[in-house]
Amino acid sequence: MELDDLKSLLQRHFTDGLVTVVGSGLSCAEGLPGMEALAAYLQATIEAGLTDDDKALWAELSPMITANGLEAALLAKPPSATLEAAIVAKTAELIAQREREIVTEIFNRTRTLRFTILLKHILKPTTGVPVITTNYDRLIEIASEEAGLGVDTLFVGQFAGHLNEQESRLSFCREVTLKGKNVQYRYRPRVNVFKPHGSLDWYYREGKPVSYAGDLPLPRLIITPGLNKFRNGYESPFDRHRERANGAIDKASRFLVLGYGFNDDHLETHLTPRIRSGVPTLLLTHTLSDNARKLAQEHANVIAIQQGFVAGKDGSSVFVNKTDHFVPNLALWDLAAFISEVLEP
C-alpha cells in the first residue's frame, strides 16, 4: 500500500460516532510507569509495611511476579484483603508521584500531552466526546482541559465531589431556549471520561465515593490487577463508569484504541464483540498484545499499527485488510508521530 493511500485511509477514520479507548500504553508514552515498573516498585517497597501473614503470602507471590508478571501472578494467587490494600496504596503512590512530575511540566507550559493535540482533530458531538480509559491517572482529564474542553467524570463538586451523573451533565449547560413546544439545551463542548478501574482522585467518605483532586493519606478507589478486580468492579462508582463505558461502546460507529491490550474482561464483554461485528477500528500501540494481533489478523475492519523492524530499519508495522505492511522510518504507532504525519499533513 502506498503511503499516501494509507494516510488517506487513516484520515477518513476520524469522523462521526468515534469512541476512544485509552490503555496504559498512552500513559507510558507520557512517562508514567507501566506494569513492569509497577511490579519492580512493589518488589522493592511493599514488604516493609506488611503483617507477618502478608509477608508470607508476598514471599509466595514475589517469584511468581518475577517469572510471569504482576497480573498473571495475582490471577494465579489472589492476595488477601490487607495485602490487596497495600498493593493499591503502593500502586497509587508510584503513579501519583510520576503524575505530579508530568503535571508540573504541563502547568509550566514545558510539555503538551499527546491527547491534547489529538482532541483538536476529533469531532465534538453535543453529547460530549466519549473516552474510556482503564488508567488510574488524570492525564486524559488534564489533556482535555488543556485543549479548552470541559471534563465530565460524573462527579459534581470541587471538594469531596459526589457522584451524580445528571447534575454533572447539567453543569455543562450554557443555554436553554424554547422553540414552540420544544426545549433545546446548549452544552459546553466537553469530554466524557469513563474510568471502570477507578481514579487517583476517588476516595470513600462516610461510605460513599467522592472525588478530591489533592493527595489524602487515605485509600484510593482503584482496582489493581488480579481476580479481585472483578468483584470490586461491581461496586460504586466503578459500576456506573463501567455501565457508561459499555453504553458508549454499544453506540459507537467506530473505535480509536490507544495503547490498550484487549485483556480486560470488564470491557471485553462489549468491546471485542462490537469489533468482531464489523465496527471500523483503528489501533495504535507500541506492541500488539496477542488478543489485539488476533483481531487485526482476522478482521478486515481493524487497522492496527505497532512498532516494526525490517532489514535493520525502524518503522511501523501496519495491519490493513488482515495483511501486515511495513512503513519504514515513520513511528506511526506513536500518537505524536501519527498526529504529525497523518492529521497535520
Results as ranks from 00 to 15, higher is better:
148 G>E: 14
269 T>L: 08
101 E>K: 07
141 E>V: 04
138 R>K: 04
338 F>E: 07
114 R>K: 12
330 L>A: 10
324 D>F: 09
76 A>E: 09
143 A>K: 01
54 D>W: 13
57 L>P: 00
336 A>K: 05
179 K>G: 08
62 S>F: 07
84 E>V: 12
202 W>Y: 03
170 L>K: 02
41 Y>K: 12
62 S>Q: 08
278 G>Q: 01
209 P>V: 09
182 N>H: 09
211 S>G: 01
319 F>A: 03
130 P>D: 14
249 I>S: 03
250 D>P: 03
319 F>R: 05
248 A>D: 05
100 R>E: 15
193 V>F: 08
46 I>F: 10
290 D>C: 07
141 E>A: 15
129 V>M: 15
181 K>E: 11
56 A>M: 14
206 E>T: 03
69 G>P: 05
192 N>D: 10
206 E>V: 05
242 R>P: 00
76 A>G: 00
62 S>A: 14
87 I>C: 00
329 N>W: 09
75 L>A: 01
314 D>I: 14
176 V>A: 13
148 G>R: 13
7 K>E: 02
55 K>N: 10
62 S>L: 10
205 R>H: 09
169 R>C: 03
334 D>R: 05
210 V>F: 06
21 V>T: 03
223 I>W: 06
292 A>S: 02
224 T>E: 02
176 V>I: 15
101 E>Q: 09
171 S>N: 14
67 A>T: 11
282 L>W: 00
141 E>L: 06
234 Y>G: 12
132 I>L: 05
226 G>T: 01
168 S>C: 11
153 T>S: 15
69 G>C: 12
296 A>P: 03
13 H>I: 13
145 E>H: 07
59 A>M: 11
